[in-house]
Amino acid sequence: MQTSVTFKNLDPSDHLKSYISDKLDRFDKYLYNPGEANVVLSVEKFRHIAEVNIIGDRLNIVGKEETEDMYAAIDMVLDKLEKQIKKNKQKVRERRSGKGKAKTAMGEPTGAVVMEDDGERRVMVQNIEYKPMDVDEAVMQMDLVDNNFLVFTNARSDRVNVLYRRKDGNYGLIQPNP
Results as ranks from 00 to 15, higher is better:
residue 39 V to G: 02
residue 70 M to Q: 05
residue 67 T to H: 14
residue 119 G to T: 10
residue 115 M to G: 12
residue 84 Q to L: 06
residue 32 Y to W: 08
residue 155 A to Y: 11
residue 47 R to T: 03
residue 167 K to C: 03
residue 72 A to Y: 08
residue 92 V to Y: 06
residue 19 Y to A: 00
residue 147 N to A: 01
residue 21 S to L: 12
residue 105 A to P: 03
residue 89 K to N: 07
residue 92 V to M: 02
residue 121 R to N: 06
residue 43 V to S: 02
residue 26 R to E: 08
residue 72 A to C: 09
residue 115 M to F: 12
residue 133 M to E: 12
residue 2 Q to R: 15
residue 51 E to V: 04
residue 106 M to T: 10
residue 41 L to W: 00
residue 114 V to I: 15
residue 108 E to S: 09
residue 110 T to V: 15
residue 69 D to W: 13
residue 23 K to D: 05
residue 116 E to N: 12
residue 115 M to Y: 06
residue 85 I to Y: 11
residue 166 R to V: 04
residue 7 F to W: 06
residue 126 Q to Y: 11
residue 177 N to R: 10
residue 32 Y to M: 13
residue 19 Y to G: 00
residue 104 T to S: 13
residue 115 M to V: 13
residue 174 I to Y: 15
residue 149 F to T: 09
residue 63 G to L: 01
residue 73 A to L: 03
residue 77 V to E: 00
residue 149 F to Y: 10
residue 68 E to C: 07
residue 1 M to F: 07
residue 105 A to W: 10
residue 138 A to N: 10
residue 41 L to P: 01
residue 176 P to Y: 13
residue 73 A to T: 04
residue 25 D to F: 06
residue 172 G to L: 13
residue 176 P to F: 12
residue 76 M to Q: 04
residue 161 N to E: 09
residue 68 E to Y: 13
residue 59 L to M: 14
residue 140 M to E: 15
residue 49 I to P: 01
residue 111 G to H: 13
residue 10 L to G: 01
residue 13 S to A: 07
residue 97 S to H: 03
residue 82 E to T: 05
residue 51 E to H: 03
residue 59 L to F: 07
residue 135 V to E: 14
residue 123 V to T: 02
residue 11 D to C: 03
residue 76 M to H: 13
residue 1 M to A: 08
residue 21 S to T: 15
residue 44 E to Q: 14
residue 90 Q to K: 05
residue 65 E to C: 08
residue 125 V to H: 06
residue 55 I to F: 02
